[in-house]
Design a binder for these strands. Structure first.
Lengths: 200, 200
DNA sequence: CGCATTCTGCACTGATCAGTGCAAAACTTG
DNA sequence: CAAGTTTTGCACTGATCAGTGCAGAATGCG
């Protein structure tokens, strides 16, 4: 019993996310967000209360989508765990070369935000920490499965191996933003796997 | 035969670098820079022409100092190459816990800038690429030495191993900014070394 | 001492920042 | 159709942005 919105909140969130992803939080003005979404400022504020809150929701959307995809890959029961981990790296590398517009890679919004805020924003930091914890847990489970399969022969703690693999994914994203081409990223991923497949 | 400066350009550059390091390029206003350096805006512009140019010089200073330190560690002839690489990781982790003010880690200005600009600023991108190339070269040399020593048994191309190790350092910085404690970072570094010491 | 030159402090520019106030528009429900 | 409610477009706020203009201060050189 009121005037309905002329926009789809989900679509707007997606477009805002893309803008933040490309230019960071500070580097994206509320005007940029209006241009990216097609909304007027008052509509943005009416629907999302503030730039910070819009960012929080866009980041949440990103991490949930990203983590869901990664979980799906890591929990695919049809292939051995080591292959799932390999597939995860392949997916991450693929993203670096498909999601970008014309120019260089835009990396990972999660990594970008971690670096831009550097833990100085407690709310954002908590959000990222929870997401990291979720990803680390599925990674750890995959590592344990890989060990049962006999493919992962590293004697190290599975949780530590998971944290290592997660750090490598961040390193790959940064390398991509630094201009590394596909072959280089793939070589980094393959080398990284040596650490978990080797006996010592 | 003119009025001399009341400030030391090097000291100002150091303080500006620190400000950019803490809050990024966009996140540091020219007012912030004045507060950090004690200079007036006109003095800053008189000496450094623009915010962008000041940043370029601060970043150059950072990369040169950082790369010099890393080179020194990696070329220390008194210890085996694998130990030098281990020492490099130790130094990087140490930096994360000594250079920070009170709060969380501030990472690496090079990584932070790579992520913030994402290759969109050609001049900055070139600067970072040249620095990366220099670091990769000394890393590669260390890897080759480690192979001669018999400590590095990975059959992979030394240049690829160097790129891998460099990516891991970026991953460690990001993990630090994400709130990881010292023990976690050390475990990541140790695990990463497995990839180069293992035979396959 | 005084001239040439550079540096410094302060006030200013126009542009942009995040966010708001308000009236008209658009819709649902009765 | 009319009342009630929310959304929308536009103009506005004060604050801050990067950068500049200029007068006076401070030096070295003659």
């Amino acid at each position: 019993m009121a005037r309905p919105r002329t926009f789809d909140e989900d679509r707007v969130l997606e477009q805002a996310m893309r803008a933040f992803w490309l230019h960071g939080y500070e580097g994206t003005s509320t005007r940029d967000l209006c241009e990216a979404t097609g909304l007027d400022r008052s509509s943005v504020y009416n629907a999302f209360t503030s730039k910070h809150e819009l960012f929080r929701r866009a980041l949440t959307r990103y991490t949930e989508a990203m983590t869901a995809t990664q979980t799906e890959i890591l929990e695919d029961g049809d292939r051995p765990a080591i292959e799932r981990i390999r597939a995860l790296f392949a997916k991450i590398i693929d993203d670096e070369f498909t999601f970008r517009g014309d120019a260089p890679s835009i990396g990972c919004l999660g990594v970008n935000t971690t670096v831009e805020f550097g833990g100085r924003d407690p709310e954002i930091a908590r959000l990222l920490e929870q997401d990291a914890a979720r990803r680390l847990e599925t990674l750890r489970a995959a590592v344990e499965a890989g060990r049962r399969d006999g493919d992962i022969r590293s004697p190290r703690d599975p949780a530590a191996l998971a944290r290592y693999l997660n750090a490598v994914t961040a390193g790959i994203r940064v390398a991509a933003q630094g201009g590394a081409d596909r072959a280089v990223l793939e070589a980094i991923a393959e080398t990284a796997l040596d650490a978990v497949t080797a006996t010592a």
